[in-house]
Amino acid sequence: MKSHQTAQTMKPATAAKKLGVYLEATPAEFREGVVSRAQLDAFQADPPQWLRELRAKGPHPRPVVAEKLGISISGLARGGITEPLTTEQIEALKQEQPEWLVKERATQAEVRKEGARIKKRNAERAARADHPRS
Rank of each mutant, 00 (worst) to 15 (best):
T9Q: 13
Q8W: 14
A106K: 15
G75Y: 06
R112S: 06
R133H: 09
P61Y: 07
A45G: 06
L54E: 01
A129K: 15
L19R: 05
P63F: 06
A66W: 02
R112A: 01
Y22T: 01
I71S: 00
K94I: 06
D130P: 00
G115H: 10
G80E: 06
F30Q: 05
A13E: 14
G80A: 07
E96S: 12
E29S: 13
K103E: 07
K17M: 14
A25K: 03
W50R: 10
A42Q: 10
Q97Y: 01
S134N: 14
A38R: 14
A15L: 04
K120F: 04
R78Q: 06
L93H: 01
K57R: 15
L76F: 05
K94G: 02
G20C: 08
K113L: 07
T107S: 11
E32K: 15
R105M: 10
I73N: 11
A56C: 12
S36V: 09
L85R: 08
V64E: 03
Q89L: 01
E88Y: 12
V34C: 07
R125D: 05
T6C: 12
Q39R: 07
Q97M: 08
A16I: 10
T87Q: 13
K68L: 05
E104T: 06
M10W: 04
F43P: 00
P84K: 00
E53W: 09
A42G: 01
E24L: 14
A66H: 01
A42S: 10
S134Y: 15
G20P: 04
T107P: 03
A66M: 04
A126L: 05
A106V: 06
V102N: 07
L40V: 07
A42I: 02
P47A: 11
E32D: 14
P61V: 00
Q8F: 12
A106L: 13
A92R: 15
P63S: 02
G33D: 09
R105Q: 15
R78K: 10
I71E: 01
L93V: 04
T26C: 13
V102S: 11
L19W: 11
T6Q: 13
H60W: 05
Q108E: 14
P47T: 11
H131P: 03
Q95I: 10
Y22R: 00
R37K: 14
M1H: 05
S134T: 15
